[in-house]
Amino acid sequence: MAKSRRSRRTLTVIVLVVVSLSIISFDLNGRTHSLTSGVKSVANSVYSPLRQGVVDILSPIGNFFAGAVHYGSVQSENAKLRATIGELRARAAEKGFESGQLRQLMALENLPFLQSLPTVTAQTQDENASNFTQTISIDKGRSDGVDVGMPVVGSGGLIGQVIQSFHHTAVVRLITDGESKVGVTFGQGANALVDGQGPGNDLTADLVPPHTPLHKGEVMYTSGLQAASFPMGIPVAAVQTFHTSPGASQVSITVSPQADLSRVAYVDVVLWAPAP
């Protein structure tokens, strides 16, 4: 009896592992990826409004508790006054937040580096859903013309690239993600590859030969070379440090993003698809 239970248990786990591996291979295979992508797209159409609803419900409660904690030391007879002050402060903070958002939107209205490229302005819904990737979710998707591979910019420069596009939402990989690689140009036509190094780490610029003229603060722009993933001329990062080790075949360069990636409430998706 116990043996039969054990073998059933083992069989269940083997079946689940095989099914999981099959799903993963479907997702990673170029020909069957559309299947898993379609499932995710449908799920996101349901999930996004639900999540937004939960956020809308929880935000005021969170604000209330934040206010309560802030004024926790005040005597109980001042509760009413405390609530009023908290409410006023919340409103003031909200105004500050709103004006910050307005500034970001205004900045997006006049991005000089985009020239005549059409864009779609999107609001950030979610940041870094997983601890292992640097991504943001935005509230524009295929129905707005947003597709996989399109560059995403903010005030200051390049933010990332669309890696998943659903019906009404999309996922953007930030340039700080370890998987992000951007071909750039700087100075007198020198080229490099800006490489994301994961959360909290500086980006690096690779493939720069020794003795290439460089200076701190030098801005690197997307190169737009043939078959590039980005149109040319978008500011990507500025040089922070550089040095050449003896015998090294390239300069070790650390760079920091030109766009402020810590505040990406609004972004512009450039309706530009890389050449296939």
């Binding site: 099914v19 999981s20 099959s22 799920a43 997983s130 990737t133 890696i163 998943q164």
Partner: peptide, 12 residues
């Protein structure tokens, strides 16, 4: 369904 990582990896 909502993570940007490979589909099925969390399930496995």
């Amino acid at each position: 369904l909502v993570l940007p990582t490979p589909f099925g990896l969390s399930a496995l």
